[in-house]
Design a protein around this nucleic acid. Structure first.
Length: 418
DNA sequence: TCTGGGGTCCTAGGACCC
DNA sequence: TCTGGGGTCCTAGGACCC
């Protein structure tokens, strides 16, 4: 058996952890640059606030309803998530961190009463971290996802749903459209609909081999899993990333090359930091700059840069990224987004060097280590390349940012006594 | 004025090899 | 009628996830 534990309205709940005054109140969290709504508390959902809507369109309504608004604070969410995951590890021998707010647990060899066990987990996470979670338990990962969905929707289940017999999961499957299944998105959903497959149960009853020919191997696995046979394994080890991207929308749209170059330098620095974190280097990077896609003739320039040798040195990466921006730049336009991706990543432990590789530079290594240490200790952006610029007028909007309560000394909450 | 960001996997098709 | 067959690697694009 598998369990899927999912934090309810994760980001909104994270904001409430240190703001108990906002408990049971409508709270929403905006995406980077305060663009869209990406999380809503129960009460905010009840007000009819839709997901992934541009903030500016709902501004008036939100104010009128007294909704509390937050800019995304991923430092805080990452830390709260880590606390939840650490606690969850106590409840299963095998776990998979699936996303910032979801974890799969393997329940093999555990007591029969998994419903009670699920309740115990839920109460423990609430007691220790003040994070509300839902628990879905079933014989495959896809069914566990489905059970989790049911746990959220059916209030009498009290946040824990066990789908351990075909009757139970078919009851749920018959009542949900096929696009609610893990792995079936809107595109495939449309195609399935034209084939007469509307509910999840319709898909579960389709011929897996035939569907594989019609679509791909994933759909075959999904069908197998929907019928109670596991076909998707737990992924217990964290593999290093194969690609690392850092892309942002601008707070103020720049039109000058200098702003684009400084922003790209800053994004490269962030990506390189993540690269070093996983002890990797990259042999290629991708750079893009683009105008708003809502413009009449949007410009999107992108370029892949093959490096002469694999590296993790921010200065080298930044140099090539800036050259690329220079080539992509078109004057007399305003840019909305830019980004950089490290796309040919390999481990530093298995370096393939050729004849022309410059000899290892211990000073580069030491400099990067020191840079990372300073930024880790005093917060991102404490030490940076001059190429990232001083002013950063392009920096993204974060008008409603909460403190980094758990990761910055200045932001630690104070408790009033007496 | 304002419309997210960061990933993964699969497939098809072309190049190339013997 | 009939134009080899099978394999690998790479890339772009599509689809999906949260």
């Amino acid at each position: 058996m598998f369990a899927l534990v999912d934090c309810n309205s994760c980001y909104a709940s994270c904001e409430q952890v240190f703001r108990p005054d906002l408990r049971d109140k409508p709270v929403i969290v905006l995406s980077n640059n305060d663009g869209c709504i990406i999380a809503r508390s129960k009460e905010a959902k009840r007000l009819g606030i839709p997901d992934l809507q541009p903030y500016f369109k709902l501004k008036g309504f939100l104010r009128q309803q007294g909704v509390s608004i937050f800019s995304a604070n991923f430092t805080l969410y990452g830390d709260i998530s880590h606390r939840v995951m650490t606690t969850l590890r106590e409840y299963a021998a095998e776990v998979e961190v699936y996303s910032i707010d979801e974890m799969f647990l393997s329940f093999d060899g555990l007591p029969d009463d998994l419903k009670t066990y699920g309740q115990e987990i839920k109460q423990r996470i609430w007691r220790d971290v003040r994070m509300p979670v839902s628990v879905g338990v079933a014989p495959s990962k896809t069914l566990a996802k489905l059970a989790n969905h049911a746990a959220k929707k059916i209030s009498r289940l009290d946040g824990v749903c066990l789908l351990d017999t075909a009757e139970k999961w078919q009851w749920v499957q018959a009542r949900l459209p096929v696009t609610k299944v893990w792995g079936i998105g809107s595109r495939t959903g449309k195609r399935l609909n034209t084939m007469g497959i509307r509910s999840i149960l319709d898909l579960a009853r389709a011929n897996p081999k035939h569907m594989r020919r019609e679509f791909n191997v994933n759909i075959e696995r999904t069908i197998t899993e929907l019928n109670g046979t596991p076909a998707i394994d737990m992924e217990t080890d964290v593999e290093p990333r194969q690609q690392i991207y850092c892309t942002r929308s601008f707070g103020h749209k720049p039109g000058d090359l200098y702003s684009l170059q400084t922003s790209i330098s800053a994004y490269t620095a962030r990506a390189a930091e993540k690269l070093r974190d996983q002890n990797s280097e990259t042999k290629a990077l991708q750079v893009f700059i683009s105008c708003s896609r809502f413009e009449e003739e949007p410009y999107h320039g992108q370029q892949v840069v093959e490096l002469p040798y694999a590296t993790d040195d921010t200065r080298v990466l930044s140099h090539y990224a800036r050259l690329a921006v220079e080539q992509l730049y078109r004057p007399n336009r305003l840019y909305a987004r830019a980004g950089v991706g490290l796309i040919d990543i390999r481990s530093k432990d298995f370096q393939q060097r050729d004849f022309f590789y410059p000899t290892d530079n211990p000073r580069s290594e030491a400099l990067m280590k020191t840079l990372d240490k300073i930024n880790h200790r005093y917060g991102h952006g404490s030490a940076f390349l001059a190429a990232e610029g001083q002013k950063k007028r392009w920096r993204m909007r974060q008008a409603f940012l909460s403190p980094a309560y758990t990761t910055r000394w200045q932001d630690i909450p104070r408790v009033m006594l007496g």
